[in-house]
Write a protein that binds this DNA or RNA. Structure first.
Lengths: 330, 330
DNA sequence: ACTTGACATGCAACCGGTTGCATGGAAATC
DNA sequence: GATTTCCATGCAACCGGTTGCATGTCAAGT
C-alpha cells in the first residue's frame, strides 16, 4: 500500500530555519530582499523538509494561478493538435499551464466550459469558437480573451488567412493550363469555407477560368468520395477541396473510378494536415495552425502582464505547398 | 475598451442578504442545513450581485480543486485525441476539469509536468508514460495516479491488449491461405510493439505459418514506405504493420511498386486510427483508446472519492476489423 | 556623539472561502 | 410551567501563502 505524504507548509520551514513565515515566502519570491546567508539557510531547511510552495494558496493571495485555458471545438480534428501543442509550448516558456477544453462543436458546452475555467485561469484562448458574438463579448468582459479564427472587433484575435494560399492554388492550376476547375465545398456555416470559396471565385475570375462549386453533404472524407461523380460531370480537369480530408475522399473516389491523379486530374487540398501521407502526396494549402497557437498564447500572456487590452488583429498568410497531385492539363 | 468586473465575494452576498458568511457558504454547499426561506433569500442576493464562488479559495480550504491531470506523450498522434476526448467527457460527468499535458515523448518534460500539475490537480492519469518505473512510483506516492498502457504492480492501470486483436489478424490471414507473413515493427522501446510482435509470433507458430520481422527505422509513415523493399524480398504474401500509419506507408510504397492491394498482397494495420480513409480501406486491429480514457478517469475519480488505492489491472481486449486490404492468397 | 538612512526581518492583516462549536429560540416532552 | 431536544444561524479559527508597514540594527554623514 502506498502512503501519501501530507504537504509541508511554510510555517514548518520557518520554524526549522528559525525565521518568520514571511521570510520563507520572500526567500522564494524575492530573494533580493533578504541577506544571502538567510536565503541559503532557508533554502537548506526547505530542501531538507521537501517543501514545495502550495500553488493554490499562492493563487488565492496573489490572484495569479499561472494557468491559461484553451478551448477547441474538436480535438480529433487534425487541425487542432499542432495548435494545442504549440500553445502549450509557448505557455511553458513563461511557466504557465494549459487547461484544455473540448466543446464537441457544441456552443452550450463551450459556454459551460468557459464558465468552469473562468475561476481557475488567468486568461482564455478560444479557437474557432462556435459561440455567438454576444456571448464572446460577455466572456471577454470577465477575463482576458484571445480568439483564433474568429474576427470580432475589439477582441484580440489571430486569423489564419487561407485566402492567400487558395489564391496561389488557383494561380498554380491556371499556370498548368487548367481552364475549368471545381471547388468541393465544406460545411456551409463555416467561416473558413466562406473565406475559401470567395477567394477561389475571385482568383478564377481574375484569371479568366471557370469555377463550379460542388457542395459537401456528409462529413469530409465521405463527402469528398461521394462528390466525385458530380465533380467529373462538370468536365473540370482539376479541383480544390475545402480541406485535406475532403481531398483524400476525392482521391479515393477518383481511384475507384480509375481516374489517375495527377495524370488525368489535378487535386489540391487545404490545411495540409495529412503531412504528405496520401499516395500520391497531396498538394495542399499550408495551415499555420502552429503559429496561430503560439501567437495566441503569446498575445494572451502579454495582456496578462501589461493588464491592458489592445485591439490586435494578427493575420497569418498561408501558401501553396506543391506536391504530387497536380500537373499540366491534358 | 472593455472593463473587467472584479469578483463578488461571499461577504458582499452575506451583507446583502443580511446573514453571516457561513450561511452563504452553506447555502451553496449544504442547503439542507438552512431553512428553505433563508436559502432562497441568499440565492436571490447572490444572483442579483452576480456572485460566483471562488474556486481557488474553496480549493484552499477544502483541499479539493476538482481537477484531474492527463498527460500524454504526443497529442498529434491520432491514437490520443479520442482518449483525451473520452477522458474529458467522463471527468465532466463528475464536474471535474481536465488539465492536459503533452510531453513530446520526453521523460524530462513529463517529470516536469507532473510536478507542475501536482499542486493543482487531485489526481493524474499518465497515458503511455515514458517515465521509469521508479519515477512513476515516486509520483504515485505524492498523489493518486492511474496509468494507461503501462503495467506496474500496485498502481491502478488500464491496459489495451492489442495481443488479442493481433492474434485474430494472424488467424484471419491463415484462414485466407497465407503461409508466409511479415511483421513491420515499430519503435523498439515501445511496450505495444513488444506486445504485438510477441502475439504475432505465438499465433503464427501455433498455426504453422512463417513470420519474419522487418524493422522500422524512421517515423511510422516513411518507415513503412521504405520497408516495402525488404517486405517483398521475404517472399511473404501478407503483412501486419505495427500501427496504421506504418501500414499507410506500406500501402503507398506498394502502390509505387505497382503491387496491388489486396490483389497481390494483403495488409493489416493496428490501432484503427485512420477511420477507413485509406484507399483501399485498411483492415486493422481496433484500439479501444476511447474506453481506456473513460475507464482511467473513472477509476481515478473512484480513488479520489474512496481515498483508497486498489490494485486494479483493467484489461481491454481488441479485435480485428476486416475491411478491404486483405483477401485470399494467390 | 547624534542624527539619518538603508537594509534585513518580523508582525499581522488579508486573499475568499469552509467548518467545528457555541448560542439562542422554538417546539416537544413531562 | 419547567426542562429537554432540536434546528437554524452566527462566531471565529483555519487552509497556506503574500505583502504593507513597523521595528531594530548598523554604518555613514555631519
Amino acid at each position: 500500500m502506498i502512503k501519501r505524504t501530507k504537504g509541508v507548509t511554510i510555517s514548518q520551514v520557518a520554524d526549522a530555519a528559525g525565521v518568520a513565515r514571511s521570510s520563507v515566502s520572500r526567500a522564494f519570491t524575492r530573494p533580493d530582499m533578504l541577506s544571502p546567508e538567510t536565503v541559503t539557510r532557508i533554502m537548506k531547511a526547505a530542501e531538507a523538509l521537501g517543501y514545495v510552495p502550495n500553488h493554490t494558496a499562492r493563487a488565492l493571495s496573489t490572484g495569479r494561478h499561472g494557468n491559461v485555458g484553451l478551448i477547441v471545438p474538436d480535438i480529433a480534428n487534425p487541425f487542432f493538435p499542432p495548435l494545442i501543442q504549440a500553445a502549450q509550448l509557448e505557455a511553458d516558456r513563461s511557466d504557465f499551464c494549459i487547461f484544455l477544453g473540448n466543446t464537441e462543436e457544441n456552443p452550450k458546452q463551450e459556454d459551460k466550459l468557459v464558465g468552469r475555467f473562468a475561476g481557475q485561469v488567468e486568461g482564455l484562448v478560444l479557437a474557432s469558437s462556435r459561440l455567438s458574438d454576444e456571448r464572446i463579448r460577455a466572456h471577454a468582459g470577465l477575463l482576458p480573451l484571445v480568439l483564433i479564427n474568429r474576427d470580432i472587433d475589439g477582441i484580440p484575435r489571430v486569423l489564419i488567412d487561407s485566402g492567400s494560399g487558395v489564391r496561389e492554388a488557383v494561380e498554380h492550376l491556371a499556370q498548368l493550363g487548367h481552364r475549368r476547375i471545381v471547388y468541393v465545398s465544406g460545411p456551409s456555416n463555416s467561416w473558413s469555407n466562406k473565406q475559401r470559396r470567395t477567394a477561389i471565385k475571385a482568383a478564377a475570375t481574375r484569371l479568366g477560368i471557370v469555377v463550379e462549386t460542388v457542395p459537401a453533404v456528409l462529413a469530409s472524407y465521405n463527402s469528398g468520395r461521394q462528390a466525385v461523380g458530380a465533380i467529373l460531370a462538370t468536365g473540370a480537369t482539376a479541383a480544390v477541396a475545402f480541406d485535406d480530408l475532403t481531398a483524400q475522399g476525392v482521391l479515393a473516389g477518383l481511384s475507384e473510378k480509375r481516374v489517375s491523379v495527377p495524370g488525368d486530374f489535378s487535386l489540391i487540398g487545404c490545411d495540409d494536415v495529412l503531412g504528405a501521407v496520401t499516395y500520391p502526396a497531396l498538394t495542399s494549402v499550408s495551415n499555420r495552425s502552429t503559429e496561430a497557437g503560439r501567437v495566441a498564447v503569446s498575445l494572451l500572456l502579454d495582456m496578462l502582464q501589461s493588464r491592458a487590452i489592445r485591439d490586435v488583429r494578427y493575420v497569418l498568410e498561408t501558401h501553396l505547398v506543391v506536391r504530387n497531385t497536380t500537373t499540366a492539363a491534358r
